[in-house]
Design a protein around this nucleic acid. Structure first.
Lengths: 135, 135
DNA sequence: TTAAGTGTATTATATCACTTAATACACTTA
DNA sequence: TAAGTGTATTAAGTGATATAATACACTTAA
């Protein structure tokens, strides 16, 4: 429903999915797209919780998953920081993309759709803007 | 975990997702792919529940959604039947595919991946068998 | 008419994921 | 020392999911 800006991070939180999952996805996206830079400080757990009007434990859960992903590093007493390693971001992005793509191809297969069917649909709907999904 | 055959229908039920959702998806798939024919009789609620060792209410929930989708028709006292209308199947398949594709493209966009990135991955992984996802 | 097999509805119960709340602790920096 | 970090714990509430037990209306075939 609402859009929120917290430092360099933008959030769209609703009730369609678990809150921690939305936070997780949207921070991942910001890191993957470079909207927040390598090594940058993230909002503190308490600050983000307050901004998003969500329980600190819910933010914690998202932050812990981000660290397991290798996308962030935590320093006790200092805060949470985006990883400084471009390789970590790249490899995570690749792995997640592969997971999404495989799962998507399974869905298509279950409907009996071929790769050509998919291409036709995409070309109609998205390729009006010369073949990129970004911008 | 287990594979089960109930008439013309195959099922793989586990605990990764809600049971009614798995039943729903797998029946949808069977109809979309023609594994069960137009107008064919579906297993009764009680029979399928017993075969899958699941509560009848759980099967009911899946069957009700199938009818809302226009994929099945119910006849009181007789049973549940696959729709006899190929158009119903086609239009449902198209609508669901569009939903899946749009959601997938959103995921890709959130990772900053372009359509070309996706194509490269697919060609590597799936196009060893001349461009189709089915067989 | 009867019995068996359909879908359907209701009520109760249980479990689990998710979320909030309140509180406390260890660590770092100014 | 004080303020700001991440972290851990315990308690509670809600909603989705699933089971269980019953009952009802309808259709078909014996």
């Amino acid at each position: 429903m609402e859009d929120q800006q917290v430092g360099p991070l933008r959030f769209h939180i609703d009730f369609s999915q678990p809150l921690y999952e939305q936070i997780l996805d949207q921070v991942r996206s910001a890191i993957a797209k470079g909207e927040i830079g390598l090594g940058d400080k993230m909002p503190s757990v308490r600050e983000l919780a307050q901004e998003l009007r969500v329980n600190p434990n819910t933010v914690m859960r998202a932050y812990q998953e981000l660290e397991r992903d290798g996308l962030t590093e935590k320093r006790r007493g200092q805060g949470t920081f985006v990883t400084s390693s471009p390789e970590h971001v790249r490899s995570f992005r690749t792995a997640l993309a592969a997971k999404y793509i495989d799962s998507f191809m399974d869905q298509m297969e279950s409907l009996g759709l071929t790769w050509n069917d998919i291409q036709s649909y995409i070309e109609q709907k998205y390729d009006a803007e010369e073949g990129g999904t970004t911008r």
